[in-house]
């Protein structure tokens, strides 16, 4: 973990300035981290009014450090899946904007499948995070995963049914 960590630290500031997607590639965990930085640059310009740029760079760096250090592997797996869902959803939405929404039910079910799956993942992530343990006295990680599977199955059933 350690060397990779260092690498990322070098890469991300440039990503924040250039606003291009950081060219982090290679192993899966490395790709996972890109999910958060990708979201960041969009936010960063808006923040420029509040504080200086350098501050924000350090904030972003902090964030990534924190993520690298404090995130268990399973959570990273969830993050990877969530990033994938965001990309899938965005692509579908883009297609809808560009090509029109003719079979509207197809668009809705395709898009809401990703959105629904995303929020379910987010819920799973929240429930399995150690820090939130106190919020969920009744939900063990295993229970959370079982819930997640059941909900996802329901979601998939509705989506496939709706797309006809």
């Amino acid at each position: 973990m350690a060397p990779k960590h260092r690498n990322n630290r070098d890469v991300t500031p440039s990503a924040a300035t250039s606003t291009a997607s950081p060219s982090v590639s290679g192993t899966a965990p490395g790709a996972t981290t890109s999910a958060v930085p990708v979201a960041k640059p969009i936010k960063a310009p808006a923040a420029a009014t509040a504080s200086s740029k350098q501050d924000w760079n350090s904030v972003v760096t902090n964030l990534i450090n924190h993520y690298q250090d404090a995130t268990p592997q399973r959570t990273k797996l969830i993050d990877a899946f969530m990033a994938f869902l965001v990309v899938a959803g965005a692509l579908q939405f883009l297609y809808c904007v560009l090509a029109g929404n003719y079979p509207f039910n197809a668009f809705l079910s395709g898009f809401s499948a990703t959105v629904g799956q995303f929020v379910l993942c987010a819920s799973l992530r929240i429930q399995t995070t150690e820090a939130n343990k106190s919020d969920f006295p009744a939900v063990s990680p295993e229970r959370a995963f079982a819930d997640f599977v059941v909900c996802s199955l329901i979601l998939h059933f509705f989506c496939v049914n709706f797309i006809n």
């Binding site: 899946f81 994938f84 869902l85 899938a88 959803g89 692509l91 579908q92 297609y95 090509a99 029109g100 003719y102 079979p103 197809a106 668009f107 079910s109 395709g110 898009f111 499948a113 990703t114 799956q117 996802s152 998939h156 989506c159 496939v160 797309i163």
Partner: peptide
């Protein structure tokens, strides 16, 4: 026209 979205669902399900 619906194929991309079918693919989307399919991708979601396989991803899942």
């Amino acid at each position: 026209g619906a194929w991309p979205w079918i693919a989307g669902i399919f991708a979601t399900v396989t991803g899942w």
